[in-house]
């Protein structure tokens, strides 16, 4: 399999001396499920946002689908962004709109400015939205306002909004950080399904090491803006965990992980 995403020598500086990322290298295959773990402030969110250029990297190269993302102009960038779905910790839905309207927002990048402004969608798009919502188990919520949903349901709407883009890749910024364990499991199962059945590459930022180990094909550990682990979850050792989290808390993390999973 070829690499869908290649990140090479990417660095990001905020201001003059705050280095969020320094010389990050990794590549992701098509359909791979990758978890990025690391302590808070390690640069996980920055890395994810550099990939779809919500944040501009200071230097380096990001190749997605054989296109160097950093060299794109505004219009090409928008086009590329339609191929990359994004999911957020706080769901980021428009609360006052219905579930299906929020889902259809994923199509805005494909429409003319005017049609998008007025929210004119084709019947096919609407049918696809309903199909995706059904798959995600939201068939009863389709016409509900999204602020009436629970956290887990909102996140599923977030996934639906990303999926309707027909993306090649999903970027998930701590998708389960505000959810209870059972909703978290539902969301992670959906994400895993998406990567396995639809062949969509999934990149997830996670705080839960046990979840990352359970679901991922590959783990990328980040500390202080640098990749300190890149490999299969099977080979990861408590030593690696120590290096990623930069503390003696490896044991604690594993233990807490087991409690959470239960």
């Amino acid at each position: 399999m070829t690499a869908l995403l290649e990140v090479a020598h990417v660095s990001k500086k905020f201001g003059n001396d705050t280095k969020a990322l320094s010389d990050v290298n990794f590549s992701v295959r098509e359909g791979e499920f990758v978890s990025i773990i690391g302590p808070s402030g390690a640069g996980k969110s920055t890395l994810l946002r550099c990939i779809n250029r919500m944040i501009d990297a200071s230097s380096g190269e990001i190749n997605f689908d054989n296109v160097n993302i950093l060299s794109l102009n505004k219009r090409e960038l928008k086009k590329t962004r339609t191929k990359i779905g994004m999911i957020f910790q706080h769901y980021n839905l428009v609360n006052r709109l219905t579930v299906i309207e929020n889902t259809l927002h994923g199509r805005l990048g494909f429409k003319t400015t005017f049609a998008g402004m007025l929210g004119i969608y084709t019947e096919e798009e609407k049918q696809q939205a309903i199909k995706i919502l059904n798959v995600l188990g939201l068939n009863e919520q389709i016409f509900k306002r999204s602020d009436q949903l629970s956290g887990g349901q909102k996140q599923r709407v977030g996934i639906a909004r990303a999926l309707i883009q027909n993306p090649r890749m999903l970027l998930c910024d701590e998708p389960i950080a505000s959810l209870d364990p059972s909703s978290s499991k539902v969301i992670m199962d959906h994400l895993k399904n998406i990567s396995v059945k639809m062949g969509i590459t999934v990149l997830v930022n996670l705080h839960q090491v046990d979840v990352a180990l359970k679901y991922s094909d590959t783990i990328i550990g980040i500390n202080g803006g640098q990749v300190v682990y890149n490999g299969s979850p099977k080979n990861i050792t408590p030593d690696d965990i120590h290096r990623i989290y930069g503390s003696e808390a490896g044991k604690l993390i594993f233990d807490m992980g087991e409690i959470h999973a239960g």
């Binding site: 919500m54 839905l93 994923g106 429409k111 998008g116 402004m117 883009q165």
Partner: peptide
Amino acid sequence: GVIEALQASGASWWQIVFQ
């Protein structure tokens, strides 16, 4: 975050404003 979410899906400024 809402603005960010729509930007990330490739929506334009006017679409974000009206949607």
